[in-house]
Design a protein around this nucleic acid. Structure first.
Lengths: 347, 347
DNA sequence: TTGAAAGCGCTAACAG
DNA sequence: CTGTTAGCGCTTTCAA
């Protein structure tokens, strides 16, 4: 009541705790910090803790961060949160961080390198202790800089070509192989592929895996059944498949680089009066929400996005805690979810 | 080169800028801050600015925040980012904040009041200047506390019963009226409603509006055609409609409290061998992504979620900048999107 | 085991 | 218009 009897309620500071516990604030700091508590007389530490609790003391992370340059937080860089791919990754990251007292600062970049650079800079000056990037392109100068500067970084979902940055991605090659085998086992011999953007590891890796899979099955690797889309969108998928249908290339099945491209395939087929899977089988990639509700339900490769995020967070935490340990990358297994969009080809 | 010739590269501080520009750091601070730049000789200010740029000076927001108790950021409290409803709200918030130099700290609460309280506390001690809550329940003690303590708060999508906290929500009453009128005009007389959780303004408001709409059309407000679901989930919707189908209540159309409940209706109808819209018409609420891809495509009330978020951010900014201005709440208009899930009832 | 002292980088009275 | 001074709340040497 001495110094607050007319002033607005003020959060108690460490000094308040120290005063009430009759110790110096340095001692109070040591007592309240688990890492330094052993430096302090047990009874004293208990007393400080009791006082802190009774006063409702909350350490001020701003002040702590100014002093220590740490923040117990990391940056999570996402291209677009409205793409249903990414929220589960974010949840995975958060669920791993929270128990150890860390939190994630989520930013959208809209695939804009300038916005990304801004966001990263604003996080860096706020002392984030590391980054999880879901935006990696194969060529990505910002990522090179950041790792060169020694900043802990983990990539999730997508990788970079140049540097050996730890990453957590799905085992796309196996996923593509599963999808192609499924189609081949149904009897398909002429399979088309709508590939995604080739500046992303996902787009490029799935394309490469597709050609490899054809080869493994002794099928001709025919470039005319292959279309590269420049964006992962329904309209790009529709345009690509329409072009293919308009050409004289024949095919009985399509492996789409992701679910949105597959959705575009549905549109293109419908527009041409063709039916899926009767006329053309379609396989997607990702198993984003509601793909089981399409007509027909989409056969697709399921990627464990939540686990991707969780594992990325674990990797980042070890990178932060043991900077000298060898960085590793992780490939997570995925599964083929067979639904109604695939069937044997017409005889 | 004097003090860094063996040390790790250090970010330049205001003191470095001041030294190089031959001014006191207070002057440098004034020169670099748009709000105080006019207090400084124009030439001096220019010189400081040039030096700052050449040194690559970045103000340290941690230090600034410690001093000013501000942070140029707000908290955005969301129940679950993996619900496609919320990412567009977040984008709306961010797109309004960014141009004015603010950013949003996004947290998931999983509808858990304890996690919510933790998150809010951790944001508060980080000096966030206000909150946008997308998690409001009709009874919500935390919100009462926060506003009582004078913290700027805006609710989005959902409202609270007790206090007059500014909010931005969709005009659900009109949306429900549109949906019911559409069904009535098709010839439906016996319309069921699967209501959402009654501790949320959305669940309760839509139910109330439904009864009002029946009355407006001179239809009987029959409680047996009304089921309250305790969660906004597909399974809850399926269970509710199954119960209704198993009873001897007759109805030709269902207004679902949201799209997931509507999805559950599809499931229940399919399980009973009934067809939509031939046997039963279904209307959803929200127009979440992919609802146009269902079979049949879902007729639903579209809520402008992005705009909800954007408007909430605008309200919060004025609340922060002009604390004395009267708080206002906003109702945003919504539209009925008619698709294939509604048709005239069987004769 | 504890206290004293210094300082993280910045802003905001107050004086001049 | 500019410099001086003080301090936001905390951690961390260094001494005692």
């Amino acid at each position: 009541m001495t110094r607050s009897y007319h002033s607005k309620v003020r959060q108690p500071t460490l000094q308040d705790v120290a005063d009430n516990a009759q110790v110096h604030r340095a001692t109070a700091s040591r007592a309240l910090n688990p890492a330094t508590r052993h430096l302090v007389n047990a009874e004293t530490a208990d007393r400080v803790e009791r006082v802190a609790r009774s006063l409702g003391y909350r350490p001020n992370p701003i002040a702590r961060s100014l002093k220590t340059s740490r923040s117990a937080s990391i940056g999570l860089v996402i291209p677009d949160l409205t793409n249903p791919l990414f929220p589960p990754i974010a949840r995975g990251v958060e669920d791993v961080l929270r128990p150890v007292g860390y939190s994630a600062w989520i930013v959208n970049t809209d695939n804009d390198p300038a916005r990304e650079a801004d966001a990263v800079e604003s996080m860096r000056v706020r002392n984030v202790e590391g980054f999880v990037f879901a935006t990696a392109r194969l060529e990505h100068p910002l990522l090179d800089e950041l790792t060169a500067a020694g900043s802990p970084v983990v990539l999730v979902n997508r990788r970079i070509a140049t540097a050996a940055i730890p990453s957590v991605t799905a085992d796309d090659a196996t996923g593509v192989a599963l999808a192609v085998r499924h189609l081949v086992e149904l009897g398909h011999q002429r399979i088309a592929h709508l590939a995604g953007p080739q500046d992303l590891s996902t787009g490029r890796g799935r394309l490469r895996a597709f050609r490899q899979a054809l080869q493994d099955h002794g099928l001709p690797d025919d470039p005319e059944r292959l279309i590269v889309c420049t964006s992962w969108t329904e309209s790009a998928g529709a345009a690509a498949l329409t072009a293919l249908l308009d050409s004289d290339v024949d095919f009985t099945a399509v492996l789409a680089g992701n679910d949105l491209l597959a959705l575009g395939c549905y549109d293109a087929l419908a527009a041409r009066g063709l039916r899926c899977p009767d006329d053309v089988s379609v396989v997607g990639f990702n198993d984003t929400p509601f793909m089981d509700k399409l007509s027909p339900p989409l056969t697709t490769v399921r990627i464990p996005h939540y686990e991707l995020g969780a594992e990325a967070a674990r990797l980042l935490l070890t990178e932060i805690q043991e900077p000298d340990r060898h960085p590793r990358s992780v490939l997570l297994p995925l599964t083929l979810v067979v639904r109604g969009s695939t069937a044997p080809p017409r005889p």
